[in-house]
Amino acid sequence: MQGFSHFDDSGNAVMVDVTEKKSTTRMAVAEGTIFCNKAIIDAILQKNIKKGDVLGVARIAGIMAVKQTAHLIPMCHPLLISKSSIDFEINEEKNCIKALCTVKIEGKTGVEMEALTGVNIALLTIYDMCKAVDKRMLISDIHLVEKHGGKSADFYFDGAK
């Protein structure tokens, strides 16, 4: 098979060979949202969740997940991450929390999967820490927001489905 493929000429699964690719600065941002009830939002804001600082723990979990992506997603390259951050935006009117994960590297392959993994685990951690209050939370709208670097053009999510 030609190009970047996860299959060799015999159809066997392989990790893409990036040996000949040029090392460049690469960055990706992913986001997702968890919808919950007002009691959860209030408890998070007042730091009244029994398991502790929800957003602090979720931030650490997301960053740790970024660093473990190659162990979770088959064929992902282990990467030396140079930056990983998780930020949250609480919307009290819509009773939701948006998580944003930014990942940066100087390397031969992109970090989209790392950003998407980080945002997923951050949101799952919020769910885990708040499920005693109410299990009816909804995690949704997980997507790549933007990516830069490498041979392909920059990418910006336009909301199209």
Rank of each mutant, 00 (worst) to 15 (best):
L80P: 01
M75Q: 13
A39Y: 04
Q68I: 00
V18I: 14
T125Y: 07
G11H: 05
V133T: 14
A122I: 06
A115R: 02
L55I: 10
R26K: 06
G32N: 06
N95H: 11
K51G: 07
M113C: 06
G107A: 11
I73R: 01
H6E: 14
V29A: 02
R136F: 04
G32R: 01
V103E: 13
F7I: 13
T109H: 04
D128W: 09
T25G: 02
L116P: 02
Q46I: 08
K67Q: 10
H6Q: 12
T117W: 00
E112K: 00
H6R: 05
S140H: 06
V57N: 07
M1Y: 08
I60M: 11
I34W: 04
I139W: 01
Y127S: 03
I60L: 14
T117Q: 09
M113F: 02
L123Y: 04
F7S: 05
E112L: 05
S152E: 15
A13L: 06
A65S: 09
I121D: 07
Y127A: 03
T109I: 06
I41K: 03
D17S: 05
I105S: 02
K22N: 09
A70G: 05
E92K: 11
A58Q: 03
H71A: 12
I44D: 03
N91S: 10
L123H: 05
K94D: 14
I81K: 03
Q46R: 07
G52I: 08
S84T: 09
V66M: 02
R59T: 15
K104Q: 14
D158I: 05
E112F: 00
K98A: 09
G159C: 07
K94P: 00
L45V: 11
E112P: 05
K94N: 11
G150E: 12
E146A: 08
C36D: 07
M27T: 14
I81H: 03
S152I: 12
D42H: 09
I81N: 06
A132C: 13
V119L: 04
K151N: 12
Y127G: 04
A122F: 03
F35D: 14
N48M: 13
T125N: 10
L80K: 08
T25F: 13
V14C: 11
I126D: 11
F7G: 03
A115Q: 00
S10H: 08
I44F: 01
A28I: 08
I97Q: 08
N12Y: 02
D53V: 10
D53H: 08
L123F: 03
I44W: 01
C96A: 07
F157S: 11
K94R: 10
R26H: 05
V145I: 14
V14D: 09
E93F: 01
T33I: 15
D154C: 04
K50D: 15
I49Q: 08
N95V: 06
D9Q: 12
G107D: 15
A70L: 04
D8E: 09
I49R: 03
G11V: 10
L55K: 04
F4G: 13
F7H: 06
E92P: 01
N12P: 05
R136H: 11
F4A: 13
I126C: 09
K98T: 15
S23H: 06
Q68W: 00
G11Q: 10
L116Q: 11
H6C: 12
Y156A: 07
S84R: 01
R26D: 10
I105L: 12
M1C: 09
V14M: 10
V145W: 01
F157V: 04
